[in-house]
Amino acid sequence: MSGSNRISRRDFVKVTTGTIGGIITAAIGAPAIGYLISPALSAGAKEAWVPIGQKLEDIPLNVPTPFSFTRTQVNGWERTSTSFGGFVIRKSADPKDILILSSRCTHLGCTVNWHPEANEFICPCHDAKFSKEGVVLDGPPPKPLNQYTEFKVDNDGNLLIFVKEG
């Protein structure tokens, strides 16, 4: 049969077995892989506008005012709540002239406190000191306090911040 373009019985069986076997493997393999990697793909959007629970007009000028909020994360069958906090500093009466700092120390994640008498944020864990603008003054932190750079005021005057982490 060599030289002719007719396919031999043996080759036909080989090709058919291979093709059907391949289809079956893909039909079983794709759901199997999808099942295993599913949580990695469905990790939902963590970004959201979060009200900090205070109206802009109630926040005094030039004083770091603390706020906190809790975000709930659903992982499979478990709900995990994580607390976040920070400080709002209104530099002037201009509603856009606001600095919002995270209270999470950039060293190892402890919560910094505002000490008005020292005019500094002080982290209780390793005595790190930050200025009112969040700049590192002393201690081990590698970078300044994180800022919530996106914020807005809704129609009722509530201050909202844009949060990117769960």
């Binding site: 759901p31 199997a32 099942y35 599913s38 793909l41 469905s42 069958w77």
Partner: peptide, 15 residues
């Protein structure tokens, strides 16, 4: 966790 398998996991209902 079984509810999660049935509704949250890709092809969980099938497995």
């Amino acid at each position: 966790s079984i509810q999660y398998i049935m509704t949250g996991v890709a092809f969980g209902w099938l497995v």
